[in-house]
């Protein structure tokens, strides 16, 4: 589990990562409640954005290894690519799960009305895995850490807006509402709506199921490209 421990260490060694991993999630707890929308405090509506950024920051550790040639060293070491990938992803997943726990239970302690914190945790964990998988697939397209991050930032901007995290999806024209379903952020947004208003558990299972489907698809894309 050497790669796993070092992955954890490396995730926190960079100042920018430290800020993304600690300050921003904790800061999200203290953001105010909207008047009409969103239905949860702003910090929880926007936590998905933080998770997307954290996902790419963590995944670029793997990209850095590729760019610096460290993977070449690992290729001749008694470590399979599968072990390398899984140990890294395990480390990243644990970080994201911990973040989600801190944000949600921090919010409960702070006094926010989160309706069903345990279901919200499940939703955020599902989205965290989706975010990691998307980031993994994304970095497989790039050699440069900076370029991949900057372009991904533009993409995050767009999918966050078009998925209905920044504005209620109902305000969008029909065509944009239909397009929105292809974005994982739409499903996160729908999940938040279910947390507040929903009661049929099958709807919530569907939402999480879609997020996990995205996770599997992007994980496969990201891993297969690397193997090739």
């Amino acid at each position: 589990m050497t790669i796993f421990w070092f992955s954890l260490k490396r995730s926190f060694s960079n100042t920018t990562n430290l800020i993304f991993l600690t300050l921003f999630p904790v800061g999200a707890i203290f953001l105010p409640m909207g008047e009409v929308w969103p239905f949860l405090p702003y910090g929880y509506q926007f936590f998905g954005i933080i998770v997307l950024f954290v996902g790419i920051r963590l995944a670029t550790i793997i990209l850095e290894d590729r760019a610096k040639g460290v993977v070449k060293r690992l290729a001749v070491a008694p470590v399979t690519h599968f072990q390398y990938l899984t140990q890294n992803l395990l480390a990243f997943s644990i970080i994201l799960i911990l973040q989600s726990i801190i944000v949600i239970y921090g919010g409960v302690l702070y006094g926010h009305e989160l309706y069903h914190p345990e279901w919200l945790l499940v939703l955020f964990i599902s989205f965290s895995f989706t975010s990691l998988a998307v980031a993994l697939a994304w970095i497989s397209l790039y050699r440069s850490k900076e370029t991949s991050f900057l372009v991904y930032m533009s993409v995050i901007f767009l999918i966050v807006f078009l998925g209905g995290l920044l504005m209620p999806i109902e305000a969008f024209p029909d065509i944009l509402q239909r397009i929105a379903v292809i974005f994982p952020t739409y499903w996160l947004s729908e999940g938040i709506v279910w947390i507040v208003f929903g009661n049929d558990i099958s709807e919530f299972l569907l939402i999480n199921g879609v997020l996990w489907l995205y996770t599997i698809i992007f994980l496969v894309i990201g891993s297969v490209r690397r193997i090739n």
Binding site: L150, M153, S154, F172
Partner: peptide, 19 residues
């Protein structure tokens, strides 16, 4: 991309939404 394309896309989307 960041200072021209992204704003153009966002302007386009917002213009549809806020019509």
């Amino acid at each position: 991309l960041l200072l021209l394309v992204v704003p153009i896309v966002l302007l386009t989307v917002f213009s549809f939404v806020l019509e």
